[in-house]
Simulated scan of single mutants.
Amino acid sequence: MDAHFPWFILLAPLFSAVLIQLFLRKSRGTAAGISVLTVALTFIAALFVFAGHNGTSEIPWLDFRPAFYVPIGVTVDELSKLMLLVVTGVGTLVHIYSLVYMEEG
C-alpha cells in the first residue's frame, strides 16, 4: 500500500480546519461540507491502510548530515490500524450526525 495514506490521515483534518478558519467562516454550509468530506476521506484512507500498509514512513525534520539527523515518522502496526478505523469511523459518524442535526430547515 501507499506510504502516504498515514500522512494524509494525520494532516488532512489540520489543513481542512485551517482552510475553514481562514476562508470559510462566513459560509457555514460550505465549511460543514468540507469538514464532513475531509473526515470521510480520512476514514476511506484508514480503510486502505487497514487493508495493507505496515511499517514506518518517515521524512527528515532536521537534517544536518552527517552530524545531526532527526526524522519524523509514522509507524503503522496492527493496533494502530484498528484504532485508525475506530477513530475515523466514529468521527465520520459524529460529523454526519451533527450536520443533519444542526440543519436549518
Rank of each mutant, 00 (worst) to 15 (best):
49 V>G: 01
43 F>W: 00
57 S>H: 13
84 L>S: 12
105 G>P: 00
24 L>K: 04
74 V>Q: 08
94 V>S: 01
1 M>G: 05
48 F>E: 07
55 G>K: 03
56 T>F: 08
87 V>Q: 02
54 N>C: 06
5 F>H: 06
102 M>P: 03
27 S>E: 14
69 Y>P: 05
33 G>K: 04
72 I>R: 07
15 F>R: 05
98 S>E: 12
99 L>A: 14
60 P>M: 04
79 L>K: 07
51 A>P: 14
93 L>V: 10
95 H>F: 04
11 L>K: 03
1 M>K: 04
59 I>R: 01
44 I>H: 02
41 L>S: 03
7 W>S: 12
31 A>L: 04
100 V>E: 04
58 E>F: 01
67 A>D: 15
62 L>A: 14
45 A>G: 08
2 D>C: 09
38 T>G: 01
19 L>K: 05
56 T>Y: 11
18 V>K: 03
88 T>S: 08
66 P>H: 09
98 S>D: 11
4 H>D: 15
103 E>N: 11
60 P>R: 00
76 V>Y: 01
95 H>S: 02
70 V>S: 10
33 G>T: 00
21 Q>E: 08
58 E>K: 12
35 S>C: 09
52 G>L: 00
11 L>I: 09
91 G>C: 10
93 L>K: 06
78 E>R: 13
23 F>G: 01
43 F>P: 06
